[in-house]
């Protein structure tokens, strides 16, 4: 009886922390503290939000499941295009913007998730590095296909997507996505997937349907990659399939590895920094991949588990530690 109560408290505390963080952002942007750069900086933060969703979802595959996916951008792409097509089709029917955005994101996510099942079933049945190979091929096929379909712009930029996402909504959508993924990792499902990663044979001997759990996790990851893509589409309002090329997949993967495979906190912080830093140093943006590679090599040498390893941030723990320094009287209360 004690644990769930403590967990509820922890979720509540973290939620309050996020509200506080959000208020700071609102205050910062509404008071125009950045002057004329406000819109620009807001944009960077929005980029960070959808990148966080994409990177965290990739970490489900790389960290939780221990498989390499080199084609995550393919799922982002499916989600981006499918959600854009959905919102285009539903535009002008008097659906409120936020609802339309949510419908579009869910549609994009489901399309990407279904694609994930189709890619995962053949690739995850086999052991070894098949997933890496299959996902690269998949992302390339998607890119080429979307360059040729009429509905995705036929190789030209698909523009005129409704601007439904701004930083404020993106922030909360990101929070919801990361929370759900965090809960997935902590759930019975997540533990089962981790046990498969630890020892495939022992897991199978314990009666775990190995393929099922792997495909499920892969589909969940693809779903959220699709939601991230949908957010991207409805923030950028224009896109071209080559945005989601191999480089993009590689970028997402390096952010997972730098942040720490197995740490969602690492993915969140890693994605936030790595997606905004190059943007802040725009004049050097051509060196972005070079900078990534250098950081990646340094991390691999000095912290092979990534910057955060498997550590997860917990506001509750932080507060407990702060409170621990305060007079002891507090402790007896619980």
């Amino acid at each position: 009886m004690k644990m769930p109560k403590k967990m509820k408290l922890s979720y509540l505390l973290n939620f309050l922390g996020l509200v506080l963080l959000f208020s700071i952002f609102v205050l910062m942007f509404e008071s125009k503290i950045f002057g004329t750069s406000t819109t620009y900086i807001k944009g960077i933060f929005t980029t960070a939000c959808y990148t966080i969703i994409m990177v965290t979802s990739l970490n489900l595959v790389v960290g939780c499941m221990g498989e390499f996916s080199l084609g995550h951008a393919g799922f982002v792409s499916v989600g981006a295009y499918f959600s854009a097509i959905t919102s285009n089709a539903l535009a002008g029917r008097g659906i409120p913007d936020l609802l339309l955005l949510i419908i579009a994101l869910i549609a994009g996510g489901l399309a990407a998730g279904l694609t994930g099942i189709l890619v995962g079933i053949p690739a995850l049945r086999l052991r070894g590095d098949y997933l890496a190979i299959v996902t690269v091929a998949f992302a390339e096929i998607i890119r080429v296909a979307f360059c040729n379909f009429e509905i995705t712009g036929g190789g030209k930029t698909m523009s005129g997507i409704a601007k439904l996402a701004d930083f404020y909504w993106a922030f909360w959508i990101m929070v919801i996505c990361v929370t759900v993924m965090f809960m997935y990792v902590r759930s019975r499902y997540g533990r089962t997937v981790k046990s498969i990663r630890e020892d495939y044979i022992a897991a199978a001997a314990s009666g775990i349907n190995v393929t099922y759990y792997k495909v499920l996790t892969f589909a969940v990851a693809a779903f959220f990659a699709g939601v991230g893509g949908g957010l991207y589409a409805h923030y950028m309002t224009a896109m071209i399939p080559t945005n989601f090329n191999f480089n993009y997949s590689a970028e997402l993967l390096s952010e997972v590895i730098i942040g720490g495979t197995g740490s969602l906190t690492g993915s969140v912080i890693g994605a936030a920094f790595l997606s905004s830093l190059p943007e802040l140093m725009r004049q050097f943006s051509t060196y972005r991949m070079l900078a990534y590679s250098i950081v990646l090599v340094l991390v691999m040498i000095f912290r092979p588990g990534g910057i955060f390893g498997t550590w997860e941030f917990s506001l509750t723990r932080l507060l407990e530690r702060v409170a621990g320094k305060a007079p002891k009287a507090q402790k007896g209360g619980e």
Partner: peptide, 14 residues
Amino acid sequence: LAHVPEGRHIFPDM
């Protein structure tokens, strides 16, 4: 019907 596989398969990080 249980199976103890060859080669001591356990979950090392649990």
